[in-house]
């Protein structure tokens, strides 16, 4: 076993696990609501919009935390390709968690919909009304959602690989404690 490795800073760990729950829930809510005609369709849409804005705010904070507290280094013996994959997938995740709420907001704006976060709270539009832009943004929202889900699967698989196969302290640096 390796020596106890440095951990992610506490704010980074809290944000990571909170946002993991929110973003994975959001992905399931998103695909579920567009494939449903029942009462859940309306309920899920009502959750989807404020949750998306919450994720946007948390993502901004998280990137600031990431820049303020650099993450612990990856194990020195990790193959270069895996290091590159780790770095690239992390930045892809950051970009997507920022981009997805913005595209959703812009898409509703372009469709001429009022962007309602609750019964009475409305956000201003961030894009001019345009059916062509709506169609492009709506498809982009779905495409990037699938990309985000696949990136999440790879991220989760890689984390488990570090924790269960390599047991190199990478998973515990985010989990906050040594794993068995």
């Amino acid at each position: 076993m390796s020596a106890p490795s440095p951990m992610f800073a506490l704010p980074a760990r809290v944000l990571h696990w909170l946002m993991a729950i929110l973003i994975v829930s959001m992905l399931f809510i998103g695909v579920g609501m567009v494939a449903s005609v029942s009462e859940t369709h309306d309920l899920l849409i009502r959750i989807h919009k404020p949750l998306g804005i919450a994720i946007l705010v948390l993502a901004v904070i998280r990137i600031a935390v990431r820049l303020r507290y650099p993450p612990p280094p990856l194990p020195a013996d990790l193959p270069a390709l895996q290091k590159l994959a780790a770095l690239a997938s992390h930045w892809l995740l950051y970009i997507l968690m920022l981009l997805m709420p913005l595209i959703g907001w812009a898409m509703l704006s372009a469709g001429g919909y009022p962007v309602m976060l609750s019964e009475s709270l409305r956000l201003p539009p961030i894009f001019p009304v345009s059916p062509v832009a709506f169609a492009v943004l709506r498809h982009a929202h779905g495409f990037f959602a699938l990309l985000l889900f696949l990136t999440f699967l790879a991220h989760m698989g890689a984390a488990l690989y570090h924790g269960l196969i390599r047991r190199d302290g990478v998973l515990s640096s985010m989990a906050g404690r040594r794993l068995p």
Binding site: F28, V31, A35, V37, F149, L153, M156, G157, I165
Partner: peptide
Amino acid sequence: LIGIVVVGTAAAFGYVGGWLAPHRLTP
């Protein structure tokens, strides 16, 4: 275990999204 977790999550996503639930009435 890793395979089960990853495939299981993907399958749940596919079910909720309707791709693995062809009989559900969708829009």
